[in-house]
Design a protein around this nucleic acid. Structure first.
Lengths: 188, 188
DNA sequence: GCAGTTGCGTAACGGTGTTAGATTCTCTAA
DNA sequence: TTAGAGAATCTAACACCGTTACGCAACTGC
């Protein structure tokens, strides 16, 4: 394992277990047996390290959403894919918060947008699969994609709240998504 | 104006204009003509200062939502109140991000929940007004309230993204809310 | 064996939140 | 008017942060 990936993996682990706030250049270095300046030979600065973690997060979330689509399921493609989204948020809280800028060190917006591509792709695929399942012809797929994304993120944020939790957040999500997809069917 | 409110107002202004990251104990002190330790005579620590501006944010958002309900409007109460929510997010970006933990210094969860009460109250009122307007009897008002909140927050998060913006986020919000409220009507 | 490159550590700069202690000011009581 | 108590304020410091300049040592190719 190269030193760079060693640093990256350490950062990812800390973000997962203790949140971004716990990531420190000196700590990253210490945990791989070096001193702080070594980190700067592999990343331009701290933001670059966190960007790497963030991009990896989007890649993994996108992959999970995609593979959830491949499985046979009695539920609609949209339901399946959104559940994977919420599950990822619940299981990868630290990285999820980093991915969505819910942290001090916000990523460069355009870089974030580029990194999010796999998730967008999976969502679009889910929509077209859903259209096939329900014999619906969708026109404004971008609108539908962003709507789903907005709802998924809003509900995930709800899930993080102590007095709501992810079980209830998911229940509300299914209700909302059902309502919206039926409205899409009617509109055609 | 007491020194305490002077500090608070300064913090609020900095959060509004430059974001939470720009708030510094030394800077707060300097801008009111004192040195850093003076701040600690009025707030236990930095988090307490930010908590104060966060609580003020929820109070003001709740008040705006409530007063928007008082106005006559051809639109549904829910639409009116959610537009006020999105407008607040757009116009008070810094405070909104702070209110929703999208920042390094996350508030104490239970304290945040208590602070959010005015917003919840306004949302509940909007739902009951909407029920009266549409002759609907709502049962699970808590569910409906959280659903609206989740959507509003999700769509506001979309609005902050450069490639989406608040105009489009609002358009998607109205569509989603229309779909959900009609599903509520049918369910009764 | 020598020169050059590379990898790494030491030390430092300016900044952060926070606290202890000295100092100055104000206001009451004699 | 002045002595003293109390509050208000500042200075200095601690431990940490991200980041950079620089020196040293070891390994490379000749």
């Amino acid at each position: 394992m190269t030193t760079r990936t060693h640093i990256f993996e350490t950062a990812r682990l800390i973000v997962e277990k203790q949140g971004v706030e716990a990531v420190t250049i000196r700590r990253l270095a210490a945990e791989i047996g070096y001193t702080a300046p070594v980190v700067y030979q592999h990343f331009t600065d701290k933001a670059a390290v966190l960007d790497a973690v963030l991009e990896d997060g989007f890649r993994r979330l996108g992959a999970r959403m995609l593979s959830s689509l491949a499985l046979e399921s009695p539920e609609s493609s949209i339901t399946v894919v959104l559940r994977e989204y919420l599950k990822f948020a619940q299981q990868n809280r630290g990285v999820y918060l980093l991915m969505n800028g819910m942290t001090n060190s916000r990523p460069n917006p355009e870089r974030r947008a580029k990194a999010a591509a796999p998730v967008v792709e999976a969502t679009l695929l889910a929509i077209s699969s859903w259209a096939a399942e329900t014999n619906t012809t969708t026109s404004q797929t971008d609108d539908e994609c962003d709507t789903l994304w907005g709802i998924a993120h809003g509900m995930a944020s709800l899930g993080f709240l102590d007095h709501i939790g992810f079980d209830r957040a998911w229940a509300l999500t299914t209700q909302a998504v059902d309502a919206i997809t039926t409205s899409w069917k009617i509109k055609e």
